[in-house]
């Protein structure tokens, strides 16, 4: 057993758990976006940052990947944590303005607007790469991946064209935290938006 504290609450964990897992086990809320239980955590969205304090000194770590350690002093709602969280939500609101999910989540943490300029009002992908990780780790295919880098980073299939590799299982759509995969998925599987045949009653 590894004993430590989260927000001054005593908790104990098994070796191999992460701070986030322990927090959730104890019902302590930490927001996440790029985290999904079915795949290994990647620590990309940085919403799950928590502060580790040690005397005067402290540092911020991503709780989804931080392994539990004896005696650490974890805080989930400090000023530094909230500063990072607030800015990330603002960034998200500006880059994924079309995502209902992001808006709801940001509002839950008190961020309802952003001062950052919106470049693409239709964008809803935040390129957390969760879809690609699920495709690789759960489905076992890697039909999609994170392409390019930096601000140009995007999700897609090779050459951004439909790919034979995709089996159209839709796992990527199901894990997408922002609802962006719905449109990307159609490109990847090679199906243009078409009207469904409706049930005749």
């Amino acid at each position: 057993m590894i004993d430590f504290t989260i927000n001054n609450q005593k908790v104990s964990a098994q070796p191999g758990w992460t701070v986030l897992e322990t927090a959730r086990y104890y019902g302590i809320d930490i927001p996440t976006l790029c985290y999904h239980e079915s795949v290994k955590p990647s620590g990309a969205c940085r919403l799950c940052m928590v502060e580790l304090k040690e005397g005067d000194w402290s540092k911020l770590v991503a709780s989804c990947i931080y392994p539990v350690q004896e005696g650490i002093d974890v805080h989930t709602e400090t000023e530094r944590v909230n500063n990072v969280r607030r800015w990330i939500f603002e960034m998200l609101l500006a880059t994924c303005p079309a995502s209902e999910e992001i808006r709801e989540m940001a509002a839950r943490y008190g961020v309802v607007s952003t001062q950052m300029p919106v470049h693409d009002p239709d964008q809803n992908c935040m390129v957390c790469g969760l879809c690609a990780r699920v495709c690789e780790e759960v489905v076992g295919l890697s039909a999609i991946a994170v392409m390019d880098r930096g601000v140009h980073k995007k999700i897609g299939s090779p050459f951004l064209r439909p790919t034979d590799v995709c089996v159209a299982c839709g796992c990527c759509v199901s894990v997408c935290p922002t609802g962006a995969m719905q449109s990307i998925f159609d490109t990847v599987r090679g199906k243009p938006a078409m009207e469904m045949t409706q049930l005749a009653v």
């Binding site: 295919l141 890697s142 039909a143 991946a145 994170v146 392409m147 390019d148 090779p158 790919t163 590799v165």
Partner: peptide, 12 residues
């Protein structure tokens, strides 16, 4: 490797 890896390397 899957084609995606080649493509992401080449674009990265």
């Amino acid at each position: 490797v899957p084609l995606t890896q080649g493509y992401s390397v080449a674009t990265f």
